[in-house]
Structure formats: C-alpha cells, structure tokens
Write a protein that binds this DNA or RNA. Sequence first.
DNA 1: CGACCCTTTGAAAGGAATCAACTTATGTGG
DNA 2: CCACATAAGTTGATTCCTTTCAAAGGGTCG
Lengths: 244, 244
Amino acid sequence: MVVSVGIKQQEVLLDRLSFIQNLKQADIELLRGLSWDFQEFPAQHVFVEVGDRPTRSCLIIEGVTCRITDLQNGERQIHALHIPGDMPDLLSLHLKVMDHSLATVSHCRLAYVKHAQLQDLCERSPTLNVAFWRETLIDAALGRASNLRLGELSAKERLAHFVCEMRCRYEAAQITDGSTFFLPLTQEIIGEFLGLSTVSVNRCLQELRGDELLRSERGITTILNWSALVALGQFDPTYLHLND
Amino acid sequence: MVVSVGIKQQEVLLDRLSFIQNLKQADIELLRGLSWDFQEFPAQHVFVEVGDRPTRSCLIIEGVTCRITDLQNGERQIHALHIPGDMPDLLSLHLKVMDHSLATVSHCRLAYVKHAQLQDLCERSPTLNVAFWRETLIDAALGRASNLRLGELSAKERLAHFVCEMRCRYEAAQITDGSTFFLPLTQEIIGEFLGLSTVSVNRCLQELRGDELLRSERGITTILNWSALVALGQFDPTYLHLND
DNA sequence: CGACCCTTTGAAAGGAATCAACTTATGTGG
DNA sequence: CCACATAAGTTGATTCCTTTCAAAGGGTCG
C-alpha cells in the first residue's frame, strides 16, 4: 500500500545524514530529489528474504525491524534491530544476494528508494557516497557490539549493554523523552537478539528493575541509573560513532 | 621496517578485487598506481589500537590478523580473523576513530595504502569505489556469521561452522592445497573467537577428529568429511558472497 | 637440556536452558 | 461491556552444557 509522501518523512534521512556529514546545498538537493515509495507493514512481517535480490533499499520512518537468520530447529538469530532513521538493507545496494532476512518487529512505516537512484546519487556526490558507505560501516560496528555481548558477557550484562545501546541510538534519532524511550520488543525478541531464552531475559530484566537500574513496562523503558547500567554492561559508545 | 615492493605482492589485491568485479583496464591501472608501504610484524602484535585515527589502511599479504575488543577482566573478544587478501581496517577509511584494535595472530606481512590515495581512487572510479565498499560489506557479513555461531550454535557446531568458513575463504584466496590448509591459530585464539574456553575448543576439536570430520595438527587442517561438517555447523556460504 | 608455550585430561561448580504451569495483558465478538 | 481466546510475562524445579580449576604431557627453541 503506497501512502502519501510527506516532507516530514523525508527529513528523517536528512536528519540522519546531516548529523554525520557537512552536507552542501547541492547534496541536500540531491537527497530531496530522491523519490520514495512509502509502505506499511504489520508486526512480525518478513519483508526481505534470504536469497532475495532487492532493487531498492528502505529507510525506517516508524517502527522497529530486525535482521534474521533462520536455523534448522526453527530457532532464529536476530543479528540486529533497526529503528527509525536506519536503513537496514542499504547493504543490498552492493551485495546482490541477501544472506539474511528482514522482518518487522512492530508495526512499521518504511520508505523505499530504488538502487539505481542511490547509485546515481553516489556517483554525483562523493560526500553522499561516503555518507551512505559510512552508514553501512556503522551498521557493521553494531554487529561487532553484538559479538561482544554474545561472546563475552553474562545474561545480565548483555541486557544492560543492550539497553545502553538502544538508549544512545534512540537519543541520536531524537525519539526519547528524557531518559524514557519506547522499545516495542517482546522478551522473546530480546532473547533472540541476545542469544538468551525468554525465561532468562525475564529474570535478568527483573533483576535490573530490582537493582533500580531501570524501569520498564510494555516497552516503555526508563533509565534510572545510567552509570550503573554502563558499568554493568561494560558499555563503551565509541562503536556508535556518534561524534566522529 | 619497510621492505621491498614486489609486484607479486600487489597482485594480491588485484586478484581479490577482480574476483568480484569486472575491472576495466583503467581501473587496473589505478590500482597498480597505488603506492604501498610494506611492513612486517611478529605474532601477537597490536598494530592498530582502539581510539586510533588511522590515515592509512592495510592489506594482508601474509599471515593472519584479528579484530579485538578488550574487556575489563582481561578477557578479549575476537570479532574477526583476517587472512591474506583481506583489508582488516579498510573501514577506517570512513570511520575516523577505531572502535576496536587489530593485532597479528601469526607473523604477518602487511601492505599499507594511504587513505588519501584510496579516496582519490574511489572518486575517479565508481567501479573501484563499489569494489572497496563491497569489501567492507562482506566483512560485515562475516560478523553476522559470528553472531550466528555465538548466539545459536553449540560449542561443537561453532567449531564446525568456523572450519567451514575458513576453508571457503582460504579456497577463495587460493591458499589451500586440496582440502588442506594452514590455520596458524592456537586453541586459545579459536576460543576467543568462538566465545569458548580453551578447554572446550580442545575437546570439541578432538570430537571432530574422532568423528573423522577433519584432521589437524599444528594448524595444518585437512577436511575429511565436508558434507558432515557443513551439516553439523549448519553452514551456508551465501554470506561469503563469493559468487554474486 | 631446560624454559616456555600449547595441548590434553580429569573433576567439580555454575549459569542458563528447558519443561511446565500459572498469571497477567491484549483483543475480539456476542 | 463482559466472556472467551490468544499473546506476553512470570515463577519454580530440574537438567545440561561449558566453564573453571588444577595438573600433566608434548613440542619447540635458545
């Protein structure tokens, strides 16, 4: 379903990219010249599948999506969670065959651009070329953070690290309300992301709440003790590359 | 220590890039025009540190390097292992501050190019721009494979998956001898990569040997039963993007 | 030949998974 | 607006895979 193209929605991308690069007027015009197709999906909807050869990439306007690999036993590993402003399949611009799937976690509004347009834009503007390339590099950096969590941290530490990351990303995307933000994730999803069982996620969450590090109900998450969370999760935001 | 610049060493890069793109003559000349600084390091040598702001990137000519994050307790997570033909810090071309360290695992010979040269080359040739971008995307895909191993696979499965990946990458880099290749890694390094203790790595390796899936001594690894290894590790080489 | 690093082995402890049930939300239709 | 159905969260008991601890064997190199 194609919905109306609102200027405000396009600005999501401008906000994101201007954050990291000094865009010249010409670049801004190139970005504004992109034509987007808007599409909405319900929660739990797979919108890109392994093996697909996408001809366009999407920008998340609203909602949360995840990058998934399915396993034989029906389990699945969530490699990454993406929030508004992210372009979860920007990589398909140069990796022709998808090596994973993308699915919505919550109800989502996505904006699609054709690869051809992006390629053209990258050839015209070295600045934008770098900006988009850089987006894929930061996406990869988030993957390294996942490695760290999965490989070295305990269940409780993983959860703390994860919350810290999300808080920073939400803040960067300017969708926080003070130290409160809305994470529309079930404990099952969090478990699939952190390599934990739902039961473990639940218990660790309760511990974090009991330790008064955070409050959370129905996805509405409030950080109560940031420094303690950071320490527990050994969280170092360098990998988010928000300031370089 | 800067050593002599051999033509053969430069070809490592050409081989790698021509594998994935149809290079035009002009591109090949641009690549040949790059000036490399060759440097050698002993094993266990950290050559890029967290927080560094590199002005050049390296290509591995010989040896194995690793991408590392150090933790408080002295443990470290190895995010990735790189082999000849890989450019482990190509990402520093656009991520100014390193969010991890790079270290040699075995004795290494590295070839360095200045970022300025690479940037210039990317502006001159859209093809090469894509080729290098794509290299960083594949690097990220390897990270997703790590996620999968760490998050969903048992110790034995992780090891199997890992061996499968290395075999494919070694083959692509043309440094195999039939089903035999040289992995200069201690069990400790493998453990740090797979999120396992040295003891577990050792026991799983013995199992794989006992099951006659592979043979290995002093890093010399021989695959005895490829399909069984692939099945055990649930290995799907799509993410290596060797054919697209 | 001894020092050192890597590998191997055994026994015990522990963190998280699993299984199963129960409670609390969310949502739909009568 | 309540009854029922479904999804999400919570709890307890048990099992199991890995880790940890500790020590012995084996290879390499000065």
